[in-house]
Design a protein around this nucleic acid. Structure first.
Lengths: 188, 188
DNA sequence: GTCTATACAAAGATAGAC
DNA sequence: GTCTATCTTTGTATAGAC
């Protein structure tokens, strides 16, 4: 993938996390990247193509961040859960971004179908990752569980997604801290 | 408020809950209401005016639904919390709508400032309603509390908002049921 | 690969007749 | 209050030169 193609992905990712997909135009991308509108089409023929590429890169990046703790045989369930929280805590700061797929889910039926498929896959994959972790820790007794692994996974994932929306709306980073702390208290 | 003005609000509310604000055009509203584009401008001069009116009507409607249980001196903390869950459970069905303000929060920085203010107020009001409930039930001992009233309120509200996004993305109503059940188990 | 130029449709909005 | 007609800007996208 060329350097320009990469920059376009980066810029589009940030724009969607700030405004959503529908509100982003080729003009916006063009100005942020520093190339002409037509050049964007060379790398990504349509806006839907770009949207799909952005979601895939975002999803892969998050899963990549989990690989280390996953592959370490010494990592505990606590380590893994803390690793999962990391990206959400990383959202704290001044740009008030939300999760890319959280933003896209809010405008789901405005998205091209090829993008809807990717958003659905993202949600399913993350809930499954958490559910697998909780299922394993239930057997080993590492975490305190109140509810089935699937139910607890859904609560965790949904609360984190909601926390990003809330901290943006009320402009208060402690929204994320509070939810992470409360979730930890439930299982640690 | 005229009957047409009301219909426009209803239609716009549904469209935003399905696609988000940015992706809704006067053409879309026009077709759904059965009037011409220019007639919409008569009732709401700009799209931002319409957006503000929609959020206010939506927020008022939700708070209205809570009034009965709030004013009943016999209602318990459990009753009140169950009443709060009601609208979220009401989302279950075929149209896969999300909370109006949840959708708007996802495209927050694409919104006119007058709308951002309303979205922020909605989030703050709902978290406060829950926090007040939890604070009162902490004194009375009616609910089991793990964390401060504000923290628990944030977890509840955020998880419910996230559950709407998730059940839309994966097209499974049990997402809402699971989160509500798990939240109930935490405090009942 | 990036550019200029342009096509074509759709956007939000207004004027003025009825 | 609703309409037709129109304005102006912006949207995504393509053709073809460099």
């Amino acid at each position: 993938m060329s350097e320009t193609a990469n920059r376009i992905i980066e810029v589009m990712t940030e724009l969607i996390q700030s405004r959503g997909y529908s509100a982003v135009s080729y003009q916006d991308i063009s100005e942020a990247v520093g190339i002409r509108k037509a050049s964007i089409h060379y790398h990504y023929p349509s806006k839907a193509d770009l949207g799909v590429a952005v979601i895939r890169a975002y999803a892969a990046s998050l899963m990549e961040q989990l690989r280390e703790v996953e592959e370490d045989a010494n990592s505990t369930a606590q380590d893994k859960l803390n690793a999962y929280f990391e990206p959400y805590l990383g959202f704290k700061g001044n740009d008030r971004h939300v999760c890319l797929c959280g933003a896209l889910a809010g405008e789901y039926f405005a998205l091209p179908e090829v993008m809807q498929v990717e958003v659905t896959a993202f949600f399913a994959a993350h809930q499954k990752w958490l559910a697998d972790l909780f299922a394993a820790s239930q057997e080993s007794g590492e975490l305190r569980m109140s509810g089935s692994p699937v139910q607890v996974a859904r609560l965790f994932f949904d609360a984190l997604q909601g926390a990003l929306l809330a901290r943006r709306a009320v402009d208060d980073d402690s929204q994320i801290d509070d939810v992470v702390a409360t979730l930890k208290a439930l299982v640690f």
